[in-house]
Design a protein around this nucleic acid. Structure first.
Lengths: 146, 146
DNA sequence: CTTGAACCTCTAGTTGCTAGAGCACTTAAG
DNA sequence: CTTAAGTGCTCTAGCAACTAGAGGTTCAAG
């Protein structure tokens, strides 16, 4: 039986975040001590580890909620979990592509050493004039968090 | 002189977002018509284009505020703009590295076709057991928005 | 038994918007 | 000249996914 602080250290999830997960129903309310303090068992630790892991992989909390639902009902369709991961992969790939373009844009901007005043600063030029841009950096569907 | 809607179409920034930028002081309050409607000039359009462009490149609004400050005072140090871009580049690189690791993780997970039930689903396994993970996907400093 | 760390609840703030309610104004057709 | 559609206005509240702080309680070591 772990206190919230020990669970936090064990999983790498911060204490207020654990309470937040409980508040939004991602973690079940744990048993309490006589003094009203939370005590977690192994199952809770595993579940939180799962959440932490999935968060690190960029799953939004709603996707994690779905995945946890699948675990709670283990004979359910695995295809669903696959679909969630697949969507996530697509989002990650799109994001990488966009960021790679951004990176070379920055490198291009920084390659031109400043000549003194902001007036002819390359960074500001590039930002001000789209035609100087080597890349399309139009906002593609990039609302996904990862 | 453009109405807010035309400015929106011209720059690709949504109408409520333009008003939001005005609210937080990123865009100056424009002149108003007798009927209290906003009317924008060329300078406003350029400024908003600059903001849009910088946002697309992943600059947080506070960095954009700094950059705009530099433009308003064009003999200021260009080095500052460079620094901002450099920090941004570092953030972008870190993010790309992390996302690339995530991507191969997802690919690994998806390479194992589901065998039917969630109980032995690879996705759920990988998420549940950190030791199955090929990569370190510990949360590096990745709070930067891009 | 005391002290200080760790816990509790609650509210409010963060970033960068987006959505909706409930109005006022503008513009082209009739 | 009027009217209806299409814009525009302000204001409030909401989203993710936490984080910070206030102000109070409990626990464990010495």
């Amino acid at each position: 039986m772990l206190t919230i602080g020990k669970l936090s250290r064990a999983t790498g999830v911060k204490v207020p975040t654990i309470r937040y997960y409980e508040q939004i129903g991602l973690m079940p309310p744990p048993v309490r001590s006589t003094g009203n303090q939370r005590h977690y068992d192994r199952a809770a630790q595993d579940r939180l580890g799962f959440i932490r892991h999935a968060r690190d992989l960029g799953f939004p909390l709603e996707a994690i909620r779905e995945l946890l639902g699948l675990c709670d009902d283990p004979e359910g369709a695995c295809a669903t979990a696959d679909d969630i991961a697949r969507r996530q992969l697509a989002a990650v790939e799109a994001r990488i592509a966009r960021l790679t373009a951004l990176k070379s844009e920055f490198q291009r901007m920084l390659a031109h050493r400043p000549s003194g005043s902001a007036a002819d600063c390359r960074v500001i030029q590039v930002l001000g004039d789209h035609s100087l841009c080597a890349h399309d950096h139009h906002r593609a569907e990039d609302s996904a968090q990862p």
